[in-house]
């Protein structure tokens, strides 16, 4: 090997970490500023949640409970999935209840609801209800209490209204009616729902978690104790696509969204660079009148940047290893 190549590899071994930071930063900034269309593959853990939630469409006797167990530090990953799920519920006329367990989560719930409900004719206490902040120390009695009577366990919503008097609670009494609980967290708090709400009352549990926690939660998914799982930003991007392709779909045949189909989701792509929801089916572009707002494609644009950053990191790892082994070989020769 040439001396100059070895010198270069040697230099790369000693490269300042700040240069790597700058390169990684640019690999994220550029795809965010100049978004490109990439295909989002929907995986089973995400589509399982979608199908379960969608099965409640227009059903007055079922509701989805969203449990927020995180603060702003994990917002980039969890917030897009929360907005996507809320949008799905508002789009398909599904009752949705929210509860949070950390003081800093309280404004995040309001923020998510306000972002998702824009443009939808939904009312607090009728179509959705925010139970508000409940102290983490009371999580266990509330979890167990909701198995018997939600109105007794939670008592009041975030605005101080008695839950039993709210219209949304008609036909909703306990976990039998609130048949899916999605816990959003940067830790393994979904396991508590599995332990108490699932093991004792048979409720369906799903988890929206940060990518760090995915490996820890996989055993519960594999054993079927978790119905589905949003896995970090990728899970949010998948759900955004599912909502665009099915829940937000409008045609003469399906005026309020169409039912889930594996064939359709595999064959349909939604280009994110367009302002209108456009479906690419068999190479043909079908543009609809619906706006594809930035807040509803945030995770998919983020995943573009994620992909570029991952490629950069892989390249750095490969180069670092080549440099390491070649310099090691060279040192051995000298000895």
């Amino acid at each position: 090997m040439k001396k100059s190549t070895l010198k270069l590899l040697d230099k790369m071994q000693k490269v300042d970490r700040r240069i790597i930071y700058i390169i990684v930063a640019f690999s994220i900034i550029i795809p965010l500023l100049i978004p490109f269309n990439s295909k989002t593959y929907v995986t089973e853990p995400t589509s399982n949640i979608y199908q379960k939630v969608d099965s409640f469409a227009g059903d007055d006797t079922k509701a989805v409970l969203m449990s927020f167990t995180h603060n702003a530090s994990t917002m980039p990953e969890l917030f897009p999935m929360e907005v996507a799920l809320l949008r799905h519920c508002f789009e398909r006329d599904i009752k949705v209840l929210t509860i949070c367990w950390l003081p800093a989560a309280a404004p995040l719930v309001d923020y998510a609801i306000n972002q998702a409900k824009e443009g939808y004719d939904v009312q607090s206490g009728v179509d959705y209800c925010n139970f508000g902040y409940k102290p983490y120390a009371l999580r266990l009695p509330i979890m167990l209490g909701m198995g018997d009577d939600i109105a007794k366990a939670v008592e009041t919503d975030s605005q101080g209204r008695k839950i039993e008097n709210l219209e949304i609670m008609n036909n909703i009494k306990n976990y039998d009616d609130m048949n899916i609980i999605v816990d959003f967290a940067g830790n393994s708090s979904a396991i508590q729902w599995i332990m108490y709400a699932r093991a004792k009352f048979g409720a369906n549990i799903a988890a929206g978690i940060t990518a760090v926690m995915v490996a820890d939660n996989y055993p519960y998914l594999q054993t079927g104790q978790l119905l589905g799982m949003f896995r970090g930003l990728k899970g949010a991007a998948e759900y955004e696509k599912l909502v665009d392709v099915f829940a937000a779909y409008e045609s003469d045949k399906f005026p309020n969204g169409r039912p889930f189909s594996k064939e359709i989701i595999n064959d349909t792509w939604v280009p994110i660079t367009r302002d209108k929801v456009t479906y690419e089916v068999d190479g043909k572009m079908i543009e609809t009148d619906a706006d594809l707002q930035y807040k509803f494609k945030k995770a998919r644009i983020g995943m573009n940047a994620q992909s570029v950053a991952h490629v950069m990191i892989i390249v750095f790892i490969i180069l670092g290893n080549i440099g390491f082994f070649l310099t090691k070989k060279k040192k051995k020769k000298i000895v």
Partner: peptide
């Protein structure tokens, strides 16, 4: 691998 993905996601959120 998932940890790297999570950290990059946080950076993406801030840059967004």
């Amino acid at each position: 691998g998932y940890t790297v993905m999570a950290r990059i996601s946080l950076l993406i959120g801030r840059i967004q």
